[in-house]
Amino acid sequence: MKNEKEIIDENIDIEIKLFLEAILLKYGYDFKNYSITHIKRRLLHRLRTENVNSISEMQYMALYDKNFFRLILADLSINVTEMFRDPLFYKAVREKVIPILKTYPYLKIWHAGCSTGEEVYSMAILLKEEGIYDKTQIYATDFNQLVLKKASDGIFSIDRIKEYTINYQKSGGKDSFSDYYTAKYNSVIFDKSLKENIVFADHNLVSDSSFAEVNLIICRNVLIYFDRVLQNKVINLFEESLITGGFLGLGTKEEIRFSKNFENFSTFDASQKIFRKITV
């Protein structure tokens, strides 16, 4: 027998399913293959913040108030990131991947789910220091236009610069990190030259297709929010978008072993989760 709290919780789960269906029908954003628990945490957080009584009431608000929907969209997107996140990943890119990329006449790199862009600027700095920025085109994509705008502005809070500087150094940074930004009040503005070769674009991994053939895809701590069905779909999209010999860099707890596309990849760096496409 379920108790009262368990019955309420069961109803909340039904309301969330209906809410996601409504969002898909109205706005075309499909969150049905996201981790349900993740979505539930975010929606209940919004519910408490807005002092709304139920998910059903929020569904009404999201349908009739576009600004409220934008808030929901921001809630459901993944917006926690940092510069040179997991410095050892960037160290592996610098020391193992870049020497191979250097052999190509020109390069394309895709940051999928780039959020506010901290890792994109990290990559730009790395490429400059390795002397291959000028022959590289970087695509930085996200489905959330608010975070994309922030990414293209290249302005970040000064609070975390100390942490980023340490990350930069641990990742094998060669210069002085402060050379790359100007501090103003409580913000830092990253050097304009870093984004000369970056295109910030709206792209949804759930519904959009491949748009270029690239040498390297960076997609870190995005797949963990997807169920296996969507993970498979996205890994297939990545395989389609990579040249043979191209690299895929994932988050430290992400895997492609389970995917049917795995046989087309080799493990390039197991601990830093860097894979390489081996077949056409």
Binding site: S35, T37, H38, R41, I78, N221, I224, Y225, G251, K253
Partner: peptide, 11 residues
């Protein structure tokens, strides 16, 4: 998760 699997998050 409700299906008794584990999820990780960097929220």
């Amino acid at each position: 998760e409700k299906d008794k699997t584990l999820s990780l998050s960097t929220d």
